[in-house]
């Protein structure tokens, strides 16, 4: 009994030390919100096109029945990181043949049109989510967010924040390759 009590501080130190070690892990992001959508069917939605844009609107049915997994990117012209991400996504589309769909989140149509005219439009389809309700269906916490959706409508991957910088691009490329979303299977 005495020995047990004498050992208690040591045991406590080991337990707390373990927690601290876990907490010190630089890869752990305490602000990360686990997504409930992964491996779940994509939510139902049907969005009209952005007025003044040739690109057609986006609905859940557009994500289903594709030969390869597709990418859904939630963006807005008022979102500064989206501007940086735009170049990365465009490169994925033009160089690697990724298929990209967009949800224009709470954006004024005229701003969105101007933004896409300035930067170019890599999106096959863009749905205009003026109310932000579709964003809630996707469990959105902010823009940009990017999802990879399988041909049967299952969400395979979610990236919160802009896919910008070597680490993010690498993670996203790995996810794309694993999902088989790139036609030549390559991508670097």
């Amino acid at each position: 009994m005495k020995r047990l009590i004498a050992g208690l501080p040591f045991i406590a130190a080991v337990i707390f030390g373990g927690f601290f070690l876990w907490g010190l892990n630089p890869d752990r992001d305490p602000n990360e919100i686990p997504s409930v959508l992964i491996s779940q069917p994509a939510p139902a939605f049907d969005l009209d096109p952005v007025p003044g844009l040739e690109t057609p609107g986006l609905a859940r049915s557009d994500l289903v029945g594709n030969e390869r997994p597709v990418v859904v990117n939630v963006f807005a012209s008022w979102c500064v990181p989206c501007r940086a991400e735009h170049a990365v996504l465009t490169r994925f589309v033009e160089r690697d043949g990724m298929r990209l769909f967009g949800i224009n989140y709470k954006d004024k149509p005229e701003d969105a049109v101007k933004w896409l005219n300035d930067l170019g439009n890599p999106y096959e389809r863009i749905g205009s989510d003026l109310s932000g309700r579709t964003g809630i269906e996707w469990g959105l916490s902010g823009v940009p967010e990017t999802f990879i959706v399988d041909g049967d409508g299952t969400v395979l991957f979610r990236y919160v924040g802009p896919v910008v910088g070597p680490d993010a691009v690498e993670r996203f490329t790995t996810a794309l390759t694993q999902a088989g979303a790139l036609p030549n299977g390559a991508g670097s």
């Binding site: 919100i33 686990p34 997504s35 409930v36 939510p43 809630i136 269906e137 996707w138 469990g139």
Partner: peptide, 10 residues
């Protein structure tokens, strides 16, 4: 439950 289904326990 409606909101939990979209955003999880978090």
């Amino acid at each position: 439950e409606y909101i939990r289904a979209r955003y999880g326990d978090y």
